[in-house]
Design a protein around this nucleic acid. Structure first.
Lengths: 329, 329
DNA sequence: AACCCTCTTGTTAACGATAACAATTTCTCA
DNA sequence: TGAGAAATTGTTATCGTTAACAAGAGGGTT
């Protein structure tokens, strides 16, 4: 910067003003400085700027396995939205799920200077700890639950699950099993509740639940067990990956879909439309979730008042070929 | 830091020494300082440290769509390996594929102070530009091609593709079509070449190629076209997602797999084992790729000599139920 | 006891930017 | 034409840390 100042014959402060688009700089000197900047290939030092202003223009994203479709999609959206607004994104993607690790991750992001943190899909065990964090650092939870101090953005999991199950009920299914996500995931809990609620509303029993781990493998295994009860005519799976595994188990059992058995997923992953048969599922607009979360976080960072502590994005039932009327007995 | 110094009755420099584990500090003062740090909840300011040392301990990851299985997996591995070694990871995930955007992304990461950049799956058009970059900033390319100035880490795409096709040839297939990735992706090119090479080695013609965009949808559409030629008995798809789409098209055409038609994918995504039938595919060890890439980049950052400019990780053919002998005519 | 060496601590000056205020120039209008 | 206001520029201090060097304290040797 001093080089630029010397070359263009002004003070370093004037260079700073040009770089930051301050209003009161004459056009003539601005051009002079701009030219020198270009010739010298000057680029402002981020660290120095951070130190002087106290702003880092960085936000942290803390997520469980970003290999999963949901987190990956949200991450992508958050990152993109952030970049458009001039924020860099620092990522910490956790392998394990211990609350201590989550807290350590947040601390790390804080030390890095993140102005705020977006926490993707945290698990219920962590909530107590999270509340402590938010005092130090603005935070937004995605696909989790808002807490006393941290607002959240999520697709309405409960509603999505409920409408998925209602769709099956309308088709005439009476005995609908559920493959849930890991119970310590908040979104898994909400989907489970949605399933229960839909059944209760229709005076049906919610008897069969198997817990999976979101993986196709777990869906496959769960379905094997579920199919031992031949009175069950359909499954609502808490995500598409597990539904995919379920599909295989159903095929292996020789049950035609949708004639003999119906299946609904959750996520609307790109692959789901191209399964055989196309999977009826709940579409989640992760892009919207990411955008909203970032907007919310920035408000928090700027100290603005929040009118909503919890933003929900509407899920959408996508009916494809994996659901039909239950077989006559 | 000054507070800590005051509280523990030493100079700020001594505090700095304690924080950085410098050798010549007496045990007594170390404990005093440590205590003060704990009581005051002191945490070093990253920005100031960066400014003073010139090191940011940050590496950048630039990737195309991190929603895809490959990039997402690599990102996860890189991020994890980096964090273990004390490096923060800044992510830029691109929506579009223009070289200008890639260069802008790298420039952004450089301005942020990244000590090095890992570029995931760049496309061929960008290579000229990339070479320019590496002069300013250490870089490693993943799933691309090493260049004059940038080393690379990749699963051996060519070998993987070749062994996939050889597997089909061994089963007796004579007419093997290929669904390629976008031609401007380097990995798509290499897989295409592998397919060609295997066929050439067996004196078979490499006639039918359809270009997809990695999505299930494109695999589905490509397969519809391919199936119009009834002499084709198998497809090698450049990734699992497109194979999944292909599967649907094959099913719709009423061709039983593997009795009437064989299909091979590439990636070994978690879902692929649970398709019906299980997909024969090429496994890529993305974890290993990420680790190796990070190790390579750190060598570069430290100015160490590289013994290899190009690291390849061995692919592995996973035979499942989607491949079998071609039907007798 | 004087000297030198080593170990520990302190002092001062960077790092590269912005903030706050001071100084200068230019403009406006009576 | 001159005074005051506005616009433009410059000067100095500051952000929180590490680097480089200086100074002091303690111990052993002769």
């Amino acid at each position: 910067m001093l080089d630029v100042a010397k070359k263009s014959g002004v003070s370093h402060q004037t260079v700073s003003r040009v770089v930051n688009n301050h209003p009161n700089v004459s056009e003539k000197t601005r051009q002079k400085v701009l030219l020198a900047i270009k010739n010298l290939g000057y680029r402002p030092n981020h660290a120095a700027r951070m130190l002087a202003t106290g702003k880092t223009s960085t936000i942290g994203v803390l997520s469980h396995d970003t290999t999963l479709f949901g987190p990956a999609s949200v991450l992508h959206a958050v990152q993109f939205a952030g970049r458009e607004l001039g924020y860099a994104v620092s990522l910490i993607s956790l392998k394990s799920i211990y609350p201590e690790e989550v807290m350590a991750g947040i601390q790390e992001l804080a030390d890095l200077g993140a102005e705020g943190v977006i926490i993707i899909a945290p698990q219920s065990a962590e909530y107590k700890m999270l509340n402590r964090t938010s005092r130090e650092l603005p935070a937004v939870i995605i696909e989790g639950r808002d807490t006393a101090t941290i607002p959240s953005v999520e697709v309405d999991q409960f509603l999505g699950a409920k409408s998925a199950v209602e769709h099956l009920i309308q088709l005439g299914h009476k005995n609908i099993a559920h493959i849930s996500g890991p119970k310590n995931w908040f979104s898994a809990q909400r989907r489970l509740e949605g399933w229960k609620a839909a059944l209760a509303d229709a005076n049906l029993k919610s008897s069969t639940v198997k817990e999976g781990d979101w993986s196709p493998r777990s869906g496959y295994l769960a379905t094997k067990e579920i199919l031992m009860d031949r009175t069950i005519t359909s499954i609502f799976s808490a995500n598409d990956d597990m539904a995919l595994g379920a599909l295989k188990a159903i095929n292996e059992a020789g049950l035609a879909i949708p004639e003999k058995f119906s299946l609904v997923g959750f996520d609307d992953a790109p692959a789901s439309a191209y399964l055989t048969p196309g999977l009826t599922t709940i579409h989640q607009d992760f892009d919207e979730v990411g955008k909203q979360a970032l907007a919310l976080l920035l408000k928090l960072v700027r100290g603005e008042k929040l009118n909503k502590r919890r933003i929900t994005v509407a899920p959408e039932l996508i009916i494809r070929a994996s659901t039909g009327k239950p077989p006559r007995r």
